[in-house]
């Protein structure tokens, strides 16, 4: 039986292919700014939003997105308070997100909510609306990143120099967080909240060991993300596996491959 002929699978594949471009791209900027764990935090907070959405009967991805954006402002605010302990603010917001999600999910026990599909991802539940939202988010994120890629590069490479260049550093930091929140809330239904950060960080980890230039790194992370997601979703569809887990294990295999290539080069 050919899985590709099912409409639900075509939708999942299309959504995955879109997310596989933007998630690794944002991940690259986050990793280079040493904020790799921010993805994990925002995804856990957006799960709380999804739960609330089910509870009050509002489109869950929209509520998840709103939560993630509020959380990204919260992280920036806490980062200022704790200065050099930036990861502390990330840990606090993440704990808050999980706590809130668990409360909301127990309150919503009576609803027919498939929690698993949001935690581990599902290729069966992507609706037409979901796909449209994912497409819009992808277009918006790509447009912003491509237009501002020079400035984002400078910011990631050298914050002081970016400030001397006259760039509004605080605005750019917030912009990166908000774009990440957008990507994550679009991705959780496919990859799952628990694993979405892998799609942000592992392609970047491959890019760091393989790429010589920034331009190469951008191309590489998108290619690696795309290959892992498309192949992963196909395998998950054929063998009825959890899509998020399949994609992430493929990513880890690619990372091992990248490290081996690097070793051969040296």
């Amino acid at each position: 039986m050919d899985i590709f002929s099912f409409e639900f699978f075509q939708r999942a594949l299309a959504g995955g292919a879109l997310i596989a471009v933007t998630a690794p791209l944002m991940g690259l900027f986050l990793v280079l700014r040493r904020l790799a764990m921010i993805g994990d935090t925002l995804s856990h907070v957006s799960i709380a939003g999804v739960a609330l959405g089910f509870l009050i009967n509002v489109y869950p991805i929209a509520v998840g997105l709103a939560f993630a954006i509020v959380a990204s402002f919260g992280i920036e605010a806490l980062r200022k308070t704790y200065r050099s302990f930036a990861e502390l603010s990330i840990a606090i917001i993440m704990a808050g997100g999980i706590a809130l999600a668990s409360l909301l999910f127990t309150m919503g026990k009576g609803f027919n909510v498939d929690v698993n599909s949001y935690l581990f991802g599902s290729i069966y539940t992507l609706s037409r609306t979901d796909l449209a939202v994912i497409a819009a988010i992808t277009a918006a994120v790509l447009a912003v990143v491509l237009l501002l890629r020079k400035e984002l590069f400078l910011l990631a490479f050298d914050e002081e120099a970016a400030s001397v260049g006259g760039l509004p550093v605080r605005f750019f930091n917030l912009l990166i967080s908000v774009l990440t929140a957008l990507v994550i809330s679009a991705a959780i239904k496919i990859v799952g909240a628990l694993l979405v950060s892998a799609l942000l960080t592992i392609p970047a980890a491959c890019g760091l060991v393989l790429a010589r230039s920034f331009r190469q790194a951008i191309g590489l992370v998108m290619a690696i993300g795309e290959a892992a997601v498309v192949l992963g979703l196909w395998l998950a569809g054929v063998w009825n596996l959890a899509p998020g887990g399949t994609v992430v294990l493929l990513l880890i295999a690619m990372l091992l491959g990248s490290l081996a290539v690097r070793r051969m080069r040296v």
Binding site: L32, A156, F157, D158, E160, V164, G165, S213, F214, R215
Partner: peptide, 28 residues
Amino acid sequence: GYVPQRSHFNPLFPATVREVVLSGLYGR
């Protein structure tokens, strides 16, 4: 013009010399 402390940047950062030099022109 700003010349940073060398130890502030990560040696794994994927950027060529040309990309770094050009980035001096990026600004508001």
